[in-house]
Amino acid sequence: MKRNGLLLYTALALAYAFLYLPIVLMVIYSFNASRLVTVWGGFSTKWYGELLHDDKVLDAAWLSLKVAVTNATLSTILGTLAAVVLVRFRRFPGRTLFGGMVAAPLVMPEIITGLAMLLLFVAMEETLGWPAGRSMTTIVIAHVTFSLSFVTVVVQSRLSQMDVSLEEAAMDLGARPLKVFLAITLPIISPALLAGWLLAFTLSIDDVVISAFVSGPGATPLPIVIYSKVRLGVSPEINALATIVVALVGVAIAVAGRMTLRRERNG
């Protein structure tokens, strides 16, 4: 029995090593003074300095941040409405279609979503004259379309586990449905809304394939800039950029984790 346990924990340790070693190596080599990836030329932060003067990267990062925040907010609103519809409205015309449309983007290969969105924008531009070209608007629309399904799944599970008797009590006391939703339902499902928002934010700021279809020369998000650099090969600047992204994500997770922990402790 003891031997089995040891074997099991070795397997677990190896799995963690597999997951983290590449990221750790990348972070280490971002401080490499040498331009060659495998040659250690001493400690240096010069690649970070160069990054700060790269306007293209900075613009792209700012655009990505704006897109991600807009996308997360819109997706959370639409995804929550969709979850309410799926959990609470048992029967209405077109329910099967609606359920299918919410579930499909989850299994749809990104490359097809991207292609479909671009073809829609081209057709719309031709017939309606809007949207003119690829811009932040087209990126946000495309991102919301696939993110809202993920938010719906997260909120849906929380909503279906919720104690309905609280809502019923409020209704019995004469509260209108909208008031019940705002005063009772929303606070109870708020952790799911936060989780959904963060998920939508991450999906958006990370997306390469869909953005490649719907972005244009005037609006290039950060992953597209990184992607075109990566295609040219490994460079210390990308290592530095990647390290900054990893650090930001780490800080964000630590803050979110602490917030949920505090919430749990407070009941």
Binding site: L25, M26, D206, V208, I226, V245, V246
Partner: peptide, 14 residues
């Protein structure tokens, strides 16, 4: 939660 692209990129150097 860290960038997918960056995680794939990390393997190129390895």
């Amino acid at each position: 939660w860290t960038s997918f692209l960056i995680r794939v990129y990390a393997w190129i150097g390895i």
